Structure formats: structure tokens, C-alpha cells
Computed example of a mutant assay.
Amino acid sequence: MKIKRLISNGFRGLPDRTFDFTSPRTGAPADIVVVTGPSGSGKTSLLEAIIAAKEDVGPYGLKRSSNDFVRPGEAAAKVRVDWVLSQEERARVGATGVELSSESIFAPNLFSSIDHDPSLVALLGEYDVDPAVSKVEYFHANRRIPRGGAPSIATLGVPEAERLARLTQDDAKYALVSQYIAEANLGLHDKGGTRGAERLAEAFGRLCRTRQLAGVEQVGRAIVPRFADARGTVVGLEGLSDTAKQALLFAVTFLRSGIEGSLVLIDTPELHIPEPEVGAFVAALARMGLDNQLVLATGSPGVVAGNPDALVVPMS
């Protein structure tokens, strides 16, 4: 699924305007949409408007208060989204058209929204880590791999719990990074073979130039990942730089969540990435899955400079 256009009225943090996500060259939704502008211009709010509209149609999580979305001084907020579906998506949910539109109204005293197209409800509400199932994934601005701690509902690997956590800002959704690396190296994600570990090493290598995945090691009862640099120095997860941890977070999430043909929302893709490298980092993210649409909220000039084919949406 991809977004062709979003129209906002009265949404908190956003101007009342139309946001066109189509490529001028092809007329189709752009594969990389770079939302730019100074701090406070509404970049994050645009991602939040996408999430709010999507959740109103087909929710992954619990319903949020409409007060979170209505601009102060306004009685209500409205978000219209024009969605473009792939042939596989149309066949899976029984949609008759390539394009479907949703209109969501948020108001403090409105308890039920507009009836939406049933096929769009089915598509946007479906969550499964199977790559054949398209989905919406959100990387929030202060994301990090959490340290240890007791498992929470978002870290148990239970499909319903995974679904509830995907569009939140809870770092617990990244807490199974080490476990996934161990499982991949044990062949648990490819029926006993080694391809899962190879895919993960390749994905991490595309995003991180200073370290490579060097396998796993048993420490007590735990199986922990190991990473090596060009000199052969080996460290564990906590020994990685913040830049390498970001690369690992993205690599594992793309593979673990099966992000293919999906809408990927990334706030501050440059987080912990040196400015000279951020353009190449985003380009590598765009190659991580087939037929994804990346919508990036960024203040980094390097994102635009390193991705000349991206559609730039200025907020001011």
C-alpha cells in the first residue's frame, strides 16, 4: 500500500493543506517521500496524521482520544487519505479499484467515525509478520534498543501484542532484537537452514560500515550476538556505537516484521547517523524491502542530497 495524497483540516500541528505524495515523473506514489522543514513546522505531525487516519479505518492498537488530534481552537479535525493498492492487495481483500479513499473526522464528542470501505478496513487493520501481508510500520524519533528488563506485552512475540505495539512510541517493540539474532543463527526463521542468518548479516552490512555480525555466543543460559570490526575486535550489543545500534534496529525490524509492500514512517532517520552518511543510510533503507513507500520526517540536508529521486515535501 502507498499514499497518493493526504488532505488535512484542523489537525493539531499541521496547516490546512493538501500533501501530494506523487512523483512528478511517473504520476504514481513516490517510493521515498522526504518531509522537510525547520523544528516545529509539522513534520512529525504529518506522520501522526497518517497514523491517526490509518487507525481510524483499520486499527492495530487502542483508540486514542480525539483531543490528541484537534488543533486548539478548532471544533474538529479531518484527514482524508487517498491510498493506492497493489494487485496482490486488491485480490487479498476484494477491492475493486486501484485507489481507495478514507475520510476521518476527529471531534471530542464524536464516538463513531464515518463508515469506511470494507476492503480498506480489512487491508489497514491486518497485521502479520508474513512478508506477503502489507502493513504500516512506524519508527519514532527517539527509538532505541532497550536494555534488558522483564518482558512486557509488546515483547512476548505474541502476534496480537506485536500488532498493538507497532504504531506506538514504546521502545519495547525493539526488545526482541537479540532474541531474533539468536533465532536466526539457530535456523529458526528458515526451517533449520542458515539463510535467515545470512539475510540478517547482509541487511546489517548494508546499513553499517564499521561492524559486521559475527554470529552468536552462549553466555550462561543466554545466546548473545557478537559483532566484529575490520581489525577483528569483537563486542556484544552494548559495545556497539549508537550508529551501529540504529543500523541493527532497522535491519532486525525489517526482517522480523516482514516489511514488504508496506508503508514505512520514519521520524528523524538521521538519528545517531553522521550527516555525511545519512543519505546513503536512507538509500539502503529504501532497498531493504520490495515495493515499500518510505515517508521520512527530517531536518537533514543529507537525506535529500543522497536521494535525488525522492519526492521532497517542504513544510514551510
Rank of each mutant, 00 (worst) to 15 (best):
K54H: 10
E74I: 04
V98W: 14
S101K: 15
W83K: 04
R25E: 11
R64H: 02
V33H: 13
Y60I: 13
T96K: 15
T26H: 05
Q87E: 07
S134C: 06
A75W: 03
F139K: 08
T36V: 15
S101C: 15
E137V: 03
G94I: 07
A107F: 13
I50P: 05
A28I: 01
A95W: 14
E89V: 04
G125I: 06
D31R: 15
D115G: 12
V35D: 13
P118I: 11
G27Q: 06
I32L: 04
N109W: 01
V34F: 10
V129W: 04
V84M: 11
N142H: 07
D115C: 12
Y138P: 00
A30N: 09
S134K: 05
R92S: 08
Q87Y: 01
R90M: 07
A76P: 08
V93M: 02
S119N: 13
Y60F: 15
R64F: 01
E48G: 10
V79A: 04
S45E: 02
E137A: 06
V98T: 15
S45K: 03
D115S: 14
D115F: 11
Q87W: 00
P38Y: 07
K78L: 08
L123F: 11
E48I: 06
V81Q: 03
V34C: 14
D128P: 01
W83L: 03
A30T: 09
K54S: 09
L124K: 08
N142A: 08
V35M: 13
A91K: 14
V34I: 15
A91M: 07
Y138F: 08
A122K: 15
L62D: 13
D56I: 00
D128Y: 02
A52I: 02
P29A: 14
A141D: 02
S66G: 10
F106G: 10
L120Y: 05
F69R: 03
L46Y: 07
S41L: 11
Y127S: 11
L100R: 12
A141W: 01
K63G: 11
K78D: 07
P29I: 14
P59L: 10
A28V: 02
G125C: 06
E126W: 10
N67Q: 07
P118F: 11
H116G: 06
T36L: 12
V133M: 02
K78G: 06
I51D: 06
D117V: 14
D128G: 04
V133R: 05
K135H: 00
R64G: 02
G61N: 10
G97E: 13
Y127I: 08
I114R: 11
Y60S: 13
G61S: 12
D56C: 02
A122C: 12
G94F: 04
G42T: 12
F69P: 01
S45Y: 03
V84R: 14
L100H: 10
N67V: 07
S102H: 15
V35R: 12
E88C: 00
D128W: 03
E126G: 05
S113F: 09
E88N: 02
S45I: 01
T96A: 15
R92L: 04
L62M: 13
Y138L: 00
D56R: 04
I114S: 05
A91N: 08
P131H: 07
L46T: 07
D130F: 08
D68I: 00
N67Y: 05
L62V: 14
E126V: 06
